[in-house]
């Protein structure tokens, strides 16, 4: 009874870890888009409003004086495609995602409230 449960748990954890992988470095399938984001108390400026599909890295600098979060939202502005929490003031955090073509939104949450929501387009 106990042993199968343990194996199931281990298998589940391993599956999660393996399927949940996002390539950090280019693996020969095109360059990584690097976008810089400057987060402030009332803004969330992304260096470009579009990117080509594939890997993209958002380098978020928190220029405000509150801990912030960076969100990449789906076209409905509800679903989270990716997020980076706990970016301390002055700190730099990186978020790497694999993007499919489509419409997205970027936003920051300094002190919990969403600011600087902007459209972000990924072209095939």
């Amino acid at each position: 009874m106990k042993t199968p449960l343990r194996w199931t748990a281990a298998a589940g954890a391993a599956t999660l870890l393996l399927t949940g992988c996002v390539a950090n470095q280019p693996a020969g399938d095109g360059p990584t888009n690097v976008l810089t984001v400057t987060a402030n108390a009332d803004s969330c400026a992304v260096s470009a409003s579009s990117a080509t599909s594939g890997r993209a890295t958002f380098r978020v600098t928190n220029a405000g004086d509150q801990t912030t979060e960076f969100y990449l939202l789906a076209a409905d502005r509800l679903r989270i495609v990716a997020e980076k929490e706990d970016i301390a003031p002055g700190a730099l955090a990186e978020l790497t995602v694999t993007l499919a073509p489509g419409k997205y939104f970027t936003a920051c949450k300094p002190g919990g409230a969403k600011v600087g929501e902007a459209e972000f387009t990924v072209i095939g």
């Binding site: 999660l16 870890l17 949940g20 992988c21 996002v22 390539a23 950090n24 693996a27 990716a82 997020e83």
Partner: peptide, 14 residues
């Protein structure tokens, strides 16, 4: 530092 990062979903699910 490795070749693969952990996706946001997996991190939250774990």
């Amino acid at each position: 530092f490795g070749a693969y990062g952990l996706s946001f979903e997996s991190q939250e699910i774990i």
